[in-house]
Amino acid sequence: MTYKAILNGKTLKGETTTEAVDAATAEKVFKQYANDNGVDGEWTYDDATKTFTVTE
């Protein structure tokens, strides 16, 4: 399944996708990606669109 992350960081804005077996696995991948890029904020998840959003 393909999951998407939308990054609304102070220094990084954009989107990325990952293939994962479930939302929990995708969330770990996206949170690591955000952390590696200095983005730390509030996370939300929309199951209907399989989209995570982080906003700083």
Rank of each mutant, 00 (worst) to 15 (best):
K50Y: 09
T2L: 13
V29K: 08
I6W: 04
E15G: 05
T11W: 13
Q32G: 06
M1E: 14
T16A: 12
Q32T: 08
E56Y: 10
Q32H: 06
K10V: 14
A20C: 09
T49A: 06
T51Q: 04
K13S: 09
D40A: 11
D47H: 11
E56N: 05
K13I: 09
T2R: 09
N37I: 14
T49H: 05
N37Y: 13
G41M: 04
K4D: 04
D47T: 09
A34V: 07
D46V: 05
A23R: 12
T16F: 15
E42M: 12
G14L: 15
I6Y: 07
A48F: 09
K31D: 02
T53V: 08
T2W: 13
K28L: 12
T53A: 04
T44I: 09
T18I: 14
Y3I: 01
N37Q: 12
W43V: 03
K31M: 09
L12C: 15
E15R: 05
N8L: 13
E15T: 13
N35P: 01
T55F: 08
L7Y: 13
E27V: 07
N35G: 09
A24L: 10
E56F: 08
K4M: 07
K4R: 12
Y33H: 04
A20V: 04
V21A: 13
A48W: 07
K28S: 10
T11N: 13
V21F: 12
K10S: 11
K31I: 08
E27W: 15
N8I: 14
E27A: 10
L7V: 09
A23N: 06
G38A: 06
K31R: 14
V29W: 14
K28F: 09
T17L: 09
A20Q: 06
Q32Y: 05
V29N: 07
K10W: 11
T17H: 09
V54A: 03
V21C: 13
N35T: 14
Q32M: 10
N8Y: 11
A26V: 01
I6H: 05
D40V: 14
V54E: 01
T16W: 15
T49K: 06
D22F: 03
V29C: 08
F30T: 01
K4G: 04
L12F: 15
Y33K: 03
K28W: 09
A48N: 11
T16Y: 15
T11M: 10
D40F: 15
T53R: 06
E19I: 15
D36G: 06
D46C: 10
E27Y: 15
A24H: 09
N8A: 07
T16V: 15
D46T: 04
K10L: 15
A23W: 14
N37C: 13
E42R: 10
I6C: 06
N8C: 12
T2I: 14
E27G: 07
A24M: 12
V29T: 10
E27L: 15
I6P: 03
A23K: 13
M1Q: 14
N37T: 06
Q32A: 10
K31H: 09
W43N: 01
